[in-house]
Amino acid sequence: MTGSVTIDSTSLLIASSLVLVSLYLSYSQKLGIEKETVVSVVRAVVQLVIVGYILEYIFGLESPLFTTLLLLFMAFNAAYNASKRGKGIKKILRISFCAITTGTVLTLSVLVFSGTIAYEPYQIIPVSGMIISNSMVALGVCYKQMISDFKNRREEVETKLSLGADILPSSIGIIRDAIKTGMIPTIDSAKTLGIVSIPGMMTGLILAGISPMEAIKYQIMVTFMLLSTTSISSYVACYLSYRNFFNSRKQLIIFK
């Protein structure tokens, strides 16, 4: 593999015309999502520009403390977003933050202590970004599944409660299903890697001039770490949140 790809601002501007295709389709099909599309594009550009500047600054700092603080900030934002899917569950923000942080810390520890990556901002931050965003998505799916299951499987839970069971054995089926649901997108995407999709990270490395054989090593690492982090985060989140579907008298509360 030779040279890497660079994009100048003019090329980027021309590429932005692709957004017009989306806007035209929305307008002609009366989808009514033109405003949302424009807002999302503007947000994406502004956020990425800001992140670009911040990352350049942080990479230059080479401060482990600052890197850690940034990771915590990312985890908090992810937790905040995931918690929106669990509206009504008590302490959901705290639970989400705890789940995402646990998944991230454990996964990063293995990667750093095994020497796969170094605790340097230019390695830790992008890798953590992938870990944290996957955890966020997994948690959102878990919460949605739990809320719907506690509603739809009320009879099952109350039958078990009325047989004298505590809240954990009464909810275990729901907890397991929610963890499974949270992990399925990651498992499915791992199954189809290279067949259906060339993932973003691998594409990025290849575009940057890394040989495909080298790029797949990174992708394999990413696949392992995403599997690990989604399972840990989903597990922690589900086991911490199921209690909040019950009151202190071990009675099932149904969210509206």
Binding site: E155, E156, E158, T159, K160, L161, S162, L163, G164, A165, D166, G173, R249, K250, Q251
Partner: peptide, 23 residues
């Protein structure tokens, strides 16, 4: 009733619902 441990109370007072749920 609020003074009892709920799980122990439900072992003493058993309930069989109209639509039996077999899990």
């Amino acid at each position: 009733m609020n003074k009892y441990v709920p799980t122990e109370l439900r072992k003493s007072i058993a309930y069989c619902s109209q639509l039996p749920y077999l899990f």
